[in-house]
Structures are given as C-alpha cells and as structure tokens.
Design a protein around this nucleic acid. Structure first.
Length: 289
DNA sequence: GGCCAGGTGGAAA
DNA sequence: TTTCCACATGGC
C-alpha cells in the first residue's frame, strides 16, 4: 500500500462521523482506519491524531469535499438554539461532519432504512453492493452501489434475498422511476428546499423522513430536519416534557422554526448524542440532565 | 419470545 | 383532519 497523504481537518472526528448513522458502507480495517468508496473511487482514510486525516494519494480533493472539511463547524454550532442538552450534544459530537454523499446511493440506502437499525441498514447496503454492484479490483470486498438502471432490471425476489423485506418493492419501483427519468435526481439540485422535498416524495416508499435525510446528506440542504423515532423522542423530552397531544405536525413545525439555517446539523448532533446515551436518558426530565 | 428498529401508504374514524 | 395498521427482517 502506498503511503497515505495528510490533509488538514480541524475539527474532524472520522470515526464518529462514519458511525453517526448517515453513511453505511465504510469498513473498519484491523490496522486502523477505514476503506470505502467515494462515488466510484476507492479510498483509505486514517485518523491518527487531532486536526488531520491521511488519505489515499490522489484522493485529497475528493475526500475533502466528501467529508465536508470546508464546513465551518464553529459558526454552525454557534447558530444552534441555547439549551443544556444542545450544549452537551455539541461537545459530544465535536468534529462530526455532515458529509456529501452521491445522490442515488444516499436516497436508495435511506429508502431501505425504514424500521431498521443502523447495523441492519449496513447489512442490506453491503448485500446490494455485493449482489448487484461492480467489484473494485484490488479493493475487495468493496463494490460500487448499484445504479438505478441495474436495480431496475432486478426482480423483487432478488432484492428480498438481500434482506430488504417489504422495502424491496419500493426500492425496485423507485429505481425504475429514476432510471426512466420520471424523477430527475440531478435536476432536483436546482429546486428550493420545499420543491425538492416534494419532488423526492413522489418516489414510492419515500416520505418526508427519507426525503429529508437525502436532502441533508446528499443535497447539502443543511436546514433539512429529518424526524425519526429517535429525534421525535428527543424533541418531546427536551422541548415538550409533560405536554400532551403534541402531534407530529406540531413537532415538524417546531423543528422547522427552532433550529435555524443549520438545523440539519443540530438534528444530527442530537440524534448521535441521544443514541450514545443510556436508554434511560430519554426518559429523564430535562431538569435532571 | 416479545420488543423494537433513522417510515410509508392506505383505510378507517 | 387525525389515527390506525400492515408491511419483513434481525438482534437482543
């Protein structure tokens, strides 16, 4: 293996970023670091110390963009609403970045994520890559995420064989819609947030949660605020403690208006922090933090 | 073995 | 409008 090349990254926490539930295919190596694909380019990334990462020669610019090393985390965090829990989440998530993923890979992966734990999403992603994606010579077992055209040719049974369960039907239908140009993922880049959300939601199996994840993790819409079961619990505990009849619509409205232009970052930090706490954390009252 | 997991879509109230 | 429920699979 050729020597890796250092690039400055401060603050950046590679391990937590890859383990924060936004990307699912990076493989930890026994000697340390990770192997993964940035689009179609195989890359090895290692972080040995604060403030820098080492990457495969030639992939410096690609990795810097993918890992969003240009995001000004200090300004982003300063824009969050004040609260003890938010402060704790920010401290815990120091260096976690919201990365820039390829559109289809991100959309399709989150399409398979419904009612699945993060480890299961990894398994399905790997199975789909191994079964339908092109291998990368010399980088086994890495394989590309299969293009919509490839999945569109698969049968629902083949997709189910990758452990997708009822999600197979939706992935197949969405792959066909994208392959046929019914929905143009690239063209969505030009739309504003609301229009982009609506366009993504036209795809079968894609609702507001998955659409917002795709907007946040692939379309660089840092205001997008996906609400899943975890974030719903966090919002209820931190901001609606002991209040009854808080509808999902009320939560959506609150999230959209309370977290500012980088609400997606706030959401990701709260998500990652809450998932790292003991289960009981979600059931304590805010005053007990 | 019951419970839950980064939800969605369609039916029923 | 809101509420309810089926939908597959796997880990603990």
């Amino acid at each position: 293996m050729t020597d890796l090349v250092p690039i400055p990254a401060l603050p950046f926490d590679l391990q937590q970023t890859l383990d924060s539930g936004q990307v699912f295919h990076w493989v930890a190596e026994e000697r340390g670091g990770y192997r993964g694909l940035i689009g179609e380019t195989p890359v090895r990334v290692v972080q040995r110390r604060e403030g820098e990462i080492l990457v495969t020669p030639g992939a410096e610019a690609l990795a810097g963009r993918y890992f969003a090393l240009d995001h000004d985390l200090e300004s982003i965090c300063a824009s969050f609403p004040e609260s003890p829990a938010m402060t704790e989440a920010v401290a815990f998530c120091r260096g976690v970045r919201i990365i820039r993923q390829p559109l289809w890979e991100c959309l399709a992966t989150f399409l398979t994520s419904s009612m699945k734990q993060v480890s299961h999403i990894r398994q399905m992603s790997q199975a789909l890559r191994q079964r339908f994606g092109e291998r990368v010579p010399g980088w086994e077992p890495l394989a590309l995420y299969p293009a919509p055209e490839r999945l569109a040719k698969a049968s629902e049974a083949e997709l189910r064989a990758c452990g997708l369960g009822f999600r197979a039907k939706n992935l197949l239908a969405t792959a066909r819609a994208v392959a046929e140009g019914v929905v143009d993922l690239e063209a969505i880049r030009a739309l504003d947030d609301a229009a982009a959300l609506a366009e993504l939601c036209r795809l079968p199996g894609v609702g507001p949660k998955i659409a917002n994840c795709t907007l946040l993790f692939a379309y660089e819409r840092l205001r997008a605020f996906p609400i899943d079961v975890w974030i719903e619990r966090v919002l209820r505990r931190l901001y609606f403690a002991r209040k009854r009849n808080v509808t999902p619509a009320r939560l959506r409205e609150f999230a959209a208006h309370s977290f500012g232009p980088y609400g997606g970052y706030a959401q990701q930090y709260l998500f990652h922090y809450a998932r790292s706490r003991p289960r009981s954390w979600l059931h304590e009252s805010p005053g007990e933090i």
